[in-house]
Design a protein around this nucleic acid. Structure first.
Lengths: 197, 197
DNA sequence: CAACTAATTAGATGTTTATCTAATTTGATG
DNA sequence: CATCAAATTAGATAAACATCTAATTAGTTG
């Protein structure tokens, strides 16, 4: 449900300790112990808050040996802030209808992809960008594990800026990365399916 | 303290009932009883939540006879959302130095405004947008009250999308609106002066 | 002022949650 | 496999909070 998500976003930010964690992370990633020390709290407390922040998708984690590095997920922080305002101001009611949606989709693909299938440019507008990204990931094999090099090669077929696009794949949850291995996420996790449902 | 304010903002929004109140108010003002009925909660509960929302300046109240009408305070809701993101992303620390600032400013004006004074396009980048907006509002008379129509006419001299720009004027605290009457805010309230101080 | 209506305050109750210490798990490394 | 380091889980405690009913206040109107 829409409402619940927004509540959780604000709950996540409605605590001074968590805000201070995010503030520290604005300078770069940090591991649990470092946070505990900086904030003068116990490690379990950090774990507790990290869990809340993770649930709301406000941070990302990266495991190296046995230490976990936390980082801001700027993208989702911003995304949720926006969604929240839209909700309160009720600018969410007037969504595209399904057919209109499908129409937009093919229009975007026509406009942004060349005949040979290459992506002319990355759309700046949010929804269009998602459509373009989706069009790309649909050409990956579900379940297959890709190395970073393979992903780069794949993207380069369509666009020279593979680094940006690879990052967007992760950011919008089209793919999941662990230890340099990339894998397609199930469709239900793709970012804009949230919007549509 | 900065932190505390932001926490309170998110606490205010971190409750489903309060969000639903705001949602109802997005359609216009409402009194306590009506809210209680719509939401299926007791009147004291409404009072309780109204107090929280009022503390965070997210609603305004108007008393008529013995009934109190609540309304969204869209302006502050947006303002706090913005402040919150700025805080988390720490866009308060690394400011431009004054001379650099002045230089950037005239460069932005040169680039975004045509010879005849019209705004070619609204800058997408945050700081540049602020500079452009400031340049516009500087041409309004301090202390004078403008009707919405007058504001629209004023903006149309510079750019066709008066609705967006009018909204930005409010959003960034260049102007204050009440009952359709617009007035310039004192310079100290303009958004980016916060950053500079 | 009596009666009415809407709102607020008081006080009670149950739930959520931030934090701690102690115990356990995870992963790496001698 | 024993040890070490970092993180997590379990469990306890205290504070914060959402909600209710009952009592009170504020304001209006016959």
């Amino acid at each position: 449900m829409q409402l619940e998500k927004i509540v959780n976003y604000h709950k996540a930010l409605a605590d001074p300790t968590r805000l201070r964690i995010l503030l520290l992370l604005s300078e770069g990633e940090m591991n649990g112990q470092a946070l505990a020390e900086k904030l003068n709290i116990s490690q379990p407390t950090v774990t507790h808050h990290a869990a809340k922040l993770r649930e709301a998708a406000l941070i990302t984690e990266r495991r190296e040996k046995n230490t976990v590095y936390f980082a801001q997920n700027r993208y989702f922080i911003q995304q949720h802030a926006e969604a929240s305002l839209k909700f309160i101001f009720k600018e969410g009611g007037k969504e595209m209808s399904e057919p209109e949606n499908a129409q937009t989709k093919s229009a975007v693909i026509r406009n942004f992809f060349a005949k040979d299938g290459r992506l002319r440019q990355i759309p700046a507008q949010y929804k269009k960008k998602l459509i373009a990204l989706e069009h790309l990931v649909e050409q990956l094999e579900p379940g297959r594990k890709y190395s970073e090099k393979e992903i780069n090669e794949f993207i380069k077929q369509f666009h020279e800026d593979f680094a940006t696009i690879r990052r967007e794949f992760i950011m919008h949850q089209f793919m999941y990365r662990e230890d340099g291995i990339y894998e397609l996420n199930p469709r239900e996790q793709w970012t804009h399916w949230e919007n549509v449902k």
